[in-house]
Design a protein around this nucleic acid. Sequence first.
RNA 1: GGGUCAGUAGCUCAGUCGGUUAGAGCACCGUCUUGAUAAGGCGGGGGUCGUAGGUUCGAAUCCUACCUGACCCA
Length: 978
Amino acid sequence: MLRSRHKSTTTSPRRDAGTQRTPRNTHWIRSRSMANGKGYRQTLNLPDTPFPMRGDLAKREPGWVAAWQEKRLYTQIRERCRGRLKKFVLHDGPPYANGDIHIGHAVNKILKDIIVRSKTLAGYDAPYVPGWDCHGLPIEHQIEKRYGRGLPGSEVRRLCREFAAEQIERQKRDFIRLGVLGDWDNPYLTMNYANEANEIRALARLVAAGFVVRGLKPVHWCFDCGSALAEAEIEYEERTASAIDVAFPLDPAEQARVAQAFGLAEAPQQPILAVIWTTTPWTIPANQALNVHPEYRYELVATPKGCLILAAELKDAALARYGFSASEVETLGACQGAALARVTFRHPLYDRASPVLPDTYVELATGTGIVHSAPAYGEDDFRVWIAAGFPQEAILTPVQGDGRFAPDLPEFGGLSVWEANPKIVAALEAAGALLAHAPIRHSYPHCWRHKTPTIFRATNQWFVAMDLPRPDPLRDNHPTTLRDRALAGVDATRFYPAWGKQRLHAMIANRPDWCISRQRHWGVPIPFFVHKQTGALHPRTVELMEAVAQRVEQEGIEAWFTLDPAELLGDEARDYEKVTDTLDVWFDSGTTHLHVLRGSHPELGHPAAMYLEGSDQHRGWFHSSLLTGCAIDGRPPYDALLTHGFVVDGQGRKMSKSRGNVVAPQEVCDTLGADILRLWVASTDYSGELTISKEILQRVVEVYRRLRNTLRFMLANIADFDPTREAVAPEALVDLDRWAILATATAQQQITDAYEAMEFHRVVQTMMHFASETLGAFYLDVLKDRLYTTPAQGHPRKSAQTAITHILHAFVRWMAPILPFTAEEVWEHLTGNPEESVMFHTWYELPAIPDADAVRERWHWVLDTRERVTKAIEAKREAGEIGANLEAEITLFAAGARYQALAALGRELHFPYIVSRAEVVEVATAEEERVEARKSPHGKCARCWHYEPDVGSDPAHPDLCGRCQTNLTGSGETRLWA
RNA sequence: GGGUCAGUAGCUCAGUCGGUUAGAGCACCGUCUUGAUAAGGCGGGGGUCGUAGGUUCGAAUCCUACCUGACCCA
């Protein structure tokens, strides 16, 4: 009597799920009618599953997301991980709370989620608390755009806070949609009062450690804003300016030195003049030095207007500009710029010295090769001045915040710099110092709001000093500089990929002091009181900051701005000025190791195992966190850094609205599904650029389909399998099934290694290869005959189902970090328990296989021979002799170990090659090995489609082979090998 | 202009210490199957390893320059 699979007595929980029977029943009825009365098809154990072939991800994922939130999946995972000995804290770098997420955000969060999930599966306690960066200029700009400028500071702050909160909700929704698991109900926000307070405390720690100093710094300055501008607020536009060549006379006392430098026996009779070229005449009143390149060649040229010093390379163009003909000039001598170091010239308008300070920033693109230096109004000028050892206090700053010269400046006092320009040119001409004057069009920085030209202007700012030795907590308070600590910190950090170390190291080695002050409203205050006369910080600053922090903890940053200094200082208040600067936002996120890891979310812990961000964060968060960590703790707040590249289009171009090549993550989720986007992220080598395009996504969809169908096929073949009662012990498994489990173990090792190394594209490649090659093209293909034709409850089939179940359990975990939605879907079908989650588990422990080496050796030879077999059959197929593989019979001529392995399979040798008959003949040498394929001369069994000599041997079943008779009406066949 | 990095098949990626004819999956073409079927098997075509030099008996691999692109800075 036939045994219907539907009468299976298994007690697996999923057997009770009524919905799962319907498709099988319709299937059964349809196939019966198609069997044309014979009905052999209904005697087969064909695949059957409600797991759909198509994922329909875009439609179904939102439902899964809701279900995860409903059952508080993240919290459940946290509870189950409690007590795990290994902890892995991936500290979230906070995205800026402005604008909807783009593909770069998606890449970042997906990579983090893959890591958190894979670490969880690897047995770590891996919490994940997302965060947002809330203060700062871009949000303040949004508010200015909406409500205009001129709002009171408190109003700006209130609107900014509201705006940031809205942005966070939008971004959060999109992040959750991506399947990212985390504590979304309790994220950290840098604008939470507690965090704001702790940012102030972090600053206090830096003050206490002695790293915070006040100094001048040239910044972009807009006269209309009356404020410093960030680089991001600057636009470059074409502008016409006055280009002037100005002669600086040599200090008479330096005549002999200069003559010697140029190799002259004595100084020439004519005056010696250094000629500079500039497009900003208004900076001339602030001139304090001349810069030359130490290695360039300079010449002393006699002209009708004196002996000019000019760069050799620019000499001809300059002389032509001054209208001198070749016959009028004569080169007297030459020297390198370095030879002129510290030679003093005189200011052309004022009775003041201007020394030569050589530096390599000087270029030969235009001008004279000599740069006039106004330290207050140029970055290089300022840097070279300080580097030469001159004091900041000596820097002249005649230009006021409104763009006018200070009233006490002779001749030009009270004029705006733009009004002064022509007057200064005239004055130079009157002084006989002007050699040339011409308009020039060039690219010049403008304020992005006012569209007016900006200038560089030295202003007082607060800095974190890089090179001041301070007691180091990690070295018995032996003094070290922040730069040295940070460089040592970089060396101690592990980088993925490794080149990040060099990059960060180079940046730290070369960076100037960190300017942490901003003149903005929407930021954490720098709550300092500065003495009105001396400019010194209040002696109790650290203590006062704690008092401010306590107020901010209650009322937010507004507490500082509304604070009456007398409340904290009493009578002293009249001697102190309250600083209204805010902190650079990089300080907010750069101190999360204090105000989040050890503040708002102490369950995370310090230091973090890893920070993971885009490669731009070498300059940003990696950098600022390193500095504050080294200043406070003497070490970085992380053990490892992982960097990913930026997303570019199929041609490798960056994405931009104007190019129209933007791929929005929301759109990918709504059309293809988040699992597809995640699979794209995982399959791309993120260490360089990540390319995305329609075609690339289409390839990813194909990969997904292949994985999904392979899983579906396996699920469909264990529909009636109850592993708790029917699983076959490893030693009793069919040999091929043992091999399959070993092959799975090998793949698992490669996959977990790749996760460990953070190389997710290797995970995808290995999964794909395993699904496509190991399973699809071989194991599962071979298994079909055994699964379909042997008795439903017989050992051969149960052995196969045992192996498939092990494979599924391993596979569903491999894919879970990358394809969480599909993995949970598989998990539910595999376990029948919707309350469960694959994320509650760890990597699957596959059963140990006895005599594994022999199994591997045997199947190595079977597989090695397989390619020869398929080629031999293909040749016959092309010749039109053979159609289906089962029409073929083969003879394998094999030598040595190959012969031994093939012969071991005995009568079952034909199964791995999916032919009707296979025999093996021993030959002496490998050279004699070959494969013969021919069409079987026998009849085809109507049930198993094998061509067998015994088809029809039983008159009761004229269409059946002997094997099928046994399987149908007898005790069923025995399988030991395949 | 400087720092860091990338360029291997139409696409995504391997390629160890320099050593056979540079591999895999997907896509494409052909074919078989119709018991994974909006699937699956088999076979095939497809690469000047970004370009040009150099080192070497031998270079995708090491060196130099250049081109293209990305990030950061000037």
